[in-house]
Design a protein around this nucleic acid. Sequence first.
DNA 1: CCGTAGTGCAACTCTGGGGTTGCACATGAG
DNA 2: CTCATGTGCAACCCCAGAGTTGCACTACGG
Lengths: 117, 117
Amino acid sequence: MTDERRDTVEGVDSVLVALADPTRRRLLDLLAAQGEATATTLAGRLPVSRQAVVKHLAVLDAAGLVSSSRAGREVRYTVRPAALNATARWMATLADDWDRRLENIKRAAEAAERDSR
Amino acid sequence: MTDERRDTVEGVDSVLVALADPTRRRLLDLLAAQGEATATTLAGRLPVSRQAVVKHLAVLDAAGLVSSSRAGREVRYTVRPAALNATARWMATLADDWDRRLENIKRAAEAAERDSR
DNA sequence: CCGTAGTGCAACTCTGGGGTTGCACATGAG
DNA sequence: CTCATGTGCAACCCCAGAGTTGCACTACGG
């Protein structure tokens, strides 16, 4: 359980870094739309070289956002929702945490003012 | 409505970029824990200079993740959940979208196989 | 009014990563 | 077998951004 939590938190870092690049987000969009595609195909729809696409896909793969599978001489890439979902939940939890803390502080401030007058 | 959607999507970019840096995430953690803090104070708890902290806070501010307010000669920073929440929802929606598309493709593949035999 | 603590501004360094080019290697099509 | 197509690997360029240092400025505290 503790290990699981630590793993997901470590994964969040790589996912955020991966999503921070607009070209990689575009790649994910294309992959989600087509369901499956190769690096060469994807490069045709982007203003960058195939090598650049390959590097981006490697980053996305390391973050668990895509998975690859050989089919003969080509490599098909597919989108992988799990890591994205985990990060979304992490982020929502964090936002809730902030909300709770701010609410507590607000309450404390109001109580202090009530006491002082 | 369309404008609103475009605004949030544009905001997602800056939020993701902001969150991609570990030092900035640490800053947000410290701010959430303390409720309020100055750049100088925060720099004391991090292995970087105050100027670096100031730059990071500027990035976070531009992304809407923190807000600043003067109090005499010092500037207090506070965490701001709204932008984070919006990005979390964006991400969750995207993950759902991927899931739906993958499900559709899977269904189509099964139907095709059924037809072929 | 003087000192000090906190902020603001600017110039500078330097590494990481996004991008490219070039070529070698495998595998399917004819 | 041969050729074209798609990958893989390596060396390289380039710049955005993370970080630093130095100094000027402002506002309290005594």
